[in-house]
Structures are given as structure tokens and as C-alpha cells.
Design a protein around this nucleic acid. Sequence first.
DNA 1: AATTGGCAGTCGACAGCCGCGAGTGCCAAG
DNA 2: CTTGGCACTCGCGGCTGTCGACTGCCAATT
Lengths: 340, 340
Amino acid sequence: MVSERGLDVLRVIVQDYVASREPVGSKSIVDRHAFGVSAATIRNDMALLEEEELIAAPHTSSGRIPTDKGYRVFVNQLADLRPLSPAQRTAIETFLGSSADLDQVLVRTVRLLSQLTHQVALVQYPSLSRSRIRHVELVRLASTRVMTVLITDTGRVEQRLIEVSPEMDDLFLGQLGTKLNATLGGLGLAEAAERLAQLPDQFPTNRAGPVARIASALIEQVLANRHDKMVMAGTANLVRTEEDFSGSIYPVLEAIEEQVTLLRLFSEMEPEQNGFSVSIGKENASFGLGETSVLATGYASSGGEVSRLGVIGPTRMDYSNNIAAVRAVARYLSRLLGED
Amino acid sequence: MVSERGLDVLRVIVQDYVASREPVGSKSIVDRHAFGVSAATIRNDMALLEEEELIAAPHTSSGRIPTDKGYRVFVNQLADLRPLSPAQRTAIETFLGSSADLDQVLVRTVRLLSQLTHQVALVQYPSLSRSRIRHVELVRLASTRVMTVLITDTGRVEQRLIEVSPEMDDLFLGQLGTKLNATLGGLGLAEAAERLAQLPDQFPTNRAGPVARIASALIEQVLANRHDKMVMAGTANLVRTEEDFSGSIYPVLEAIEEQVTLLRLFSEMEPEQNGFSVSIGKENASFGLGETSVLATGYASSGGEVSRLGVIGPTRMDYSNNIAAVRAVARYLSRLLGED
DNA sequence: AATTGGCAGTCGACAGCCGCGAGTGCCAAG
DNA sequence: CTTGGCACTCGCGGCTGTCGACTGCCAATT
């Protein structure tokens, strides 16, 4: 088990590594931080941390660098968000001060965010779609395969195939369909997504799993139905941090340019308790972004419509500062767009 | 004075260097191209070319590479544009096949162009100046916040957020919207601006203030945003060609992200006789793009509006292919936009 | 049981060295 | 004007040896 001090060691390893891009050794730790113990003791703690796969040595007898798992633990422990510097605050106020057209607001926002974080910044457009749900249908295709069909009052039809567990019988499927229509009919898309998210809670625990699967498929459809668009800024920052990637950054930039990928990534990131999402390293591997981390949070525009913004950068990034910046910018943007 | 054969030598030096990224020596020239003379003769020609500063040797006793001036001469001599391959033709037709939304058309165009050229592609939005107003919408976002939406018959949508006084109730907003559409629908933008300026006079004095606010916002939308927007694709290609830049490509990417710079660059490039502009290397130095070349040409949308598109990449690029691609895409885009 | 200092061993980074090969400039001859 | 020959230059890649940082382990200490 990792001791209290062990976590402190992890913290300074992450901090020093992020600051210097060099593997951190036991000696430099005791030199730079007042731990009150000797280097040998730190070495013992580091051995523990390595056993837990929180840190790793790039080469035998070299300093250690955090693993993805190590970053994850570090981020989760990150209670004390460094507040923004006064300069950063004034930057926010200045940039977003005078309002103009929505495009311009978002462009300014995304630039601001990329400058505050020195990373690639993304802002998803708020959904402007006013379409409402007209009908939902669940169609059994095979014993474990169901197609969900979503029809909006703008005449758009979305279909999606999902796998369900065998105990999802026809009777239950019918009941679920009826309930879905009763719950969602006439709702706007954003609201429908919210209701869907709560849906599994209204079923007995043995049903909650399959229902959750269907609900999440429908949520995807609902979100896909919005005319999704995003703005991006700061791709140059990716080049600045080129050394943080093992190979070329070409495939990374390519993935980032593919907005569809990013929108899916955004939508699949599960927000934590506070509405903030952090996805680290290999957690993004399926998007071709296995060496990057993504920080994202929602922002609200008028009418309760919610969209997202965030940054994407190398796994080795200043999480503390960047999380604070993303939150602050989201807050300001929400205020700007959503004042009621 | 450079002989006829000397220009041929320059041509193959450019071609071979572009293909291989390696300095070209006299031996490899006679090996790869049937000049009918010996390497020594080529060497004499190369000495001439070097005197004219059309080629240069990166190091003593190494092959030669073209200078900016050499590229310029090469491009000017480039009479026989390599026609696009059938594959490229079908790519164009497929990509631009069907679509209505202007945003989508331009996004597809810019992606297509970046794929055909393997460079960063740019497409400037068509100018608003000649288009006509199709619809105006006023959307209340919050009690004192209204979004004005302007839709032109070229499919361009402009939004702007404005603050209004609290007494601007929904009923009045609706009436105002109806009146605006009746007044402005079908008008050209310049005329619309005039009508908008007179609009406040037609309301009782207690309404004139708020109406003036809305009118001036719309006038801004109509007049201010003419040539100010563009789409870009393929920045990843810049990374792929990273070795073509002496230093880091960071400042280059930064300059390219600064759209204002690019718009100025576009507008300052002087088209040659055929309407095509090529700007090579140091000619772009004042924009922080001293190691890049820009190819641009105009395209026409309906109503004779003209805007520009092009590519930007390292000085060492395949001018022949890229010029052909830019022209072809501009032609197709003109046809596509002009047909409705 | 935790901590410490010491010690041997590992390995990457770096600088210096060297030989290879491509390419040039020049020159005298065709 | 062209050609073959020749001496010379220089970048590049591979090799070597030194240096220094760091680890892991162990026995001694608190």
C-alpha cells in the first residue's frame, strides 16, 4: 500500500516532471523539496509507487516518470486548484468583455483558452436546433440486437443498433418504448438527453443495466441530431510540445483536425461529480490520441442548452493550471451567453 | 547570361530537389535525365546559374538547391501545367457532389484542396457585398439580450448578440421582425443598410432608441463583415513537411493560425495575367512566412462576387501539381456556387 | 519497523575521431 | 564549347570512451 508520504512523492514527481520534462530522481526530490527524509527513503517509496504502476523508469537506472495511472491518481487528488493569477483574470475579462456576434464570441473564447493553457483549445457550438422529439421506437432485430429509432418533428430519422442482454424480453421492450414516448414526446433535445440520463434510476436494479444501454444509445442519437460544430485554436501549441510525443505529432494533429472524432470524444467523456471531465493518455487511445489528455467541462447557454469546451494536449501537461483555466473560462462564457 | 539548356538544368534541379529533398549534383542530373552532354558541361551551366543566384550550394562541394529566385523563374516558365490525374478529378466531383449549406460546401472544398495538394488549404468566404437579404430573425435569449440573425441568399448566416432595454417586449420584437423582413427582403446589402438607417424614424420616439440599437447591429452585420472570414484545413500537412523549414515550424503555424494575417496576405498578392497569384519564400517574409510559398486564385459565386482560395506550404513544394489543383478546385467551386 | 549511508553496477548523453562517398572547381586536351 | 581527369572539400554515419546520474541492495542505526 502506498503511504501518505508516497502520494506526496508522486505529487512532486508529477510536478517536477511536468516542469522539466526530465525523469525525476530521488536525489533531486530531496534537494528541491523539504521532505525531511533522505534520498534512500524516497527511493523505497518510489519502489512502492513503481509496484503500483504509478510511475515507471524509462530506462534501467534512470529517474522516474509518471504513468497514465499516476497522472490519474494525481489529478483525482488535485483538490487545491491553483487559482488563476490576476493577469489571467484580467485577460479573461478583457477578451470576453465586449460582446459581438456568436461566432466572434466563441472564437475569442477559444483563443483565450488556448493562450491561458498553452494547449489546443476547443469550444463546441451551443446547439441552436429547436427540433423536438416526436417518436421513439425500439425494434427487435434478433434475440440480442435492438434497433432504436428516433424521429424528430423536423422529419429527421436516426437509427442505431445496440446489443442487449438476452433477458430483455419483448414485453419489457414494449413497456420501455411506451414509457420513453410518454417521457420524451415533445421535449427539446437537450432536455430529452437529461431525462434519458436519469431513466435507469427509475427501474429496478436488475433492469437498470440494459435500460442504461438503451438510454445511452438514445442520448447519442439525440446529441448527433444537433447540428454540431466546433471551433479550435492553438494547434501551434501542439508543435511547441512536440517532444512530449513518442513518434511524430502528425497523426495527433490529424486526429485533432477531424472534428467528428473530437465531438465524439467530447460526448463520450463521462463527467465526474463536479461536471468536469478529465481523460488521460491511453483512455483516449481509441481516438488516436493515446498520448494526449483531454480536459473538458460543460457550459450553459440560454434556455438551458448545454455544450462543452475544453483543451487537449500532451499527457504531460500542467493539470492544475489548465483545469482551473477551463473552469474559469466556462464560467465566464456561461455568464456571457446565458444571463437570465 | 543563362543559356537555353541552363534553364532546363534549373528545371530538373527544382523537380529533383522537390522530389527528393536532397541537393542535386551534376552527376545525378546526367544519370536521371537524358541531356546528351556530360556532367562537366552541366557543372559549367550550374556555375552560371549560381552566378545568377538561381541556385545555391548549402555547403561547399555539395549539390545545389534552388533559391527563391530560382523557384520564381521556374514557376514563371511553368507553361505546361500537369493536368490532374483521373483519380484527382473524380475526387473533386465526388467531394463537391451534393450539398446545400454554404458552410458545408466550403469546408468540403478546403478539405479537398488540402488533400489534393498535401498542403494547408484556405478558402475565403464569399463577400457579402453583392448578396441579397433573404431573412432576418430576432431571437430573445434573455430579458435584455437579443440575437439578430441575418440570412443571405448565398446561404451565409450572420449572428450577433446585442443588449436591449427591458421595455423591449416580445410582442414588439415580433412586430419589428415582421417589419424588418417586409422592408429588407430581397434587397442588396448596401440598400438594406440605407433603409435600416432610416428605420428608427418610423417609430414613435419612445421606441426609437431600442430600434436604433437593433438597426445599427444589423447595419454592422451587413457592412462590417465583408471579407473577414475563412476556413482552413490540412495544418497537419505542415508538420509532415517539417524538415523543409530551417527552424521550428512553431512560428509558421502561429502565423497561419492568425487569420487576419492571411486575409491581408491574400489581399496583397497581386494576381498575374491569368488571375493566378504565386508568392514565393522571402516575398512573404513580412508575414512571418518567409519560408513558405502561397498559391492563390479567385473564385466567383453567384452575382459576380469574388473571393479567393489557395494553399500555403513550404517553398519546396510541387508547384506544378498544386497550381493545377488550386485552379481546378476554384473552377469547380465557382461552378457549384454560381449555379443556384 | 522505518530510516539511513554507502557502494557497486547500469545506462544514456555527449564529444571526439575517422573513413566513406558525393560533389565541386579547375585545367588541359579534343 | 565540351570533355575527362584529378585533387580537394565536407557532411554524414558509425564507433569509442568518458562522465554523470540514478538505482537496488545491504548492513547499520534509531
